[in-house]
Computed example of a mutant assay.
Amino acid sequence: MGLVTVRYFAGARAAAGVHEEKVELPTDATVQDALTAIATLHGDVLGRVMLSASFLLDGVAVRDRAARLPEGTALDVLPPFAGG
């Protein structure tokens, strides 16, 4: 088991009801595993937000949801932003 810090921004923060949380995941968990876990924790509203969100893994954009999450990593959930 490993802990991953999940940080939520804008609409994702509103949907999750928290700015940041630690999520315990199995060893060798993937980005998708983390997304599934947090959708289970926070429900359909956050699940819908994540459909159009982008993600940063330790500050670097990650598009491959099969990417592994090392213990202690940070996963940012960034919904689309309006404006510029």
Rank of each mutant, 00 (worst) to 15 (best):
T73Y: 02
T27S: 13
I38Q: 03
G43D: 12
R68I: 15
L41N: 05
A37I: 08
V31R: 00
P70V: 05
V45F: 06
A12E: 05
L41C: 07
A14Q: 15
A39L: 07
L57Q: 11
A15E: 03
T36C: 04
L56T: 08
K22D: 05
A37L: 10
L46M: 01
A61G: 04
A16T: 02
L41A: 14
L46N: 01
Y8H: 07
V6F: 03
Q32D: 11
R13H: 02
D58K: 09
T40W: 07
E20S: 14
V62I: 11
T30H: 00
R63M: 12
A37N: 08
P70Y: 09
V62L: 04
V23F: 07
H19T: 08
A53H: 07
G11V: 09
K22G: 03
G11E: 12
A39D: 13
E24F: 08
D33Q: 10
V60M: 04
A12K: 05
A61C: 04
L69C: 08
V23D: 02
L56I: 04
G11T: 14
Y8Q: 09
E71S: 14
A66V: 08
D28S: 09
R63E: 12
I38T: 08
A29Y: 01
K22E: 09
L56P: 01
L56H: 06
D58G: 07
E21P: 09
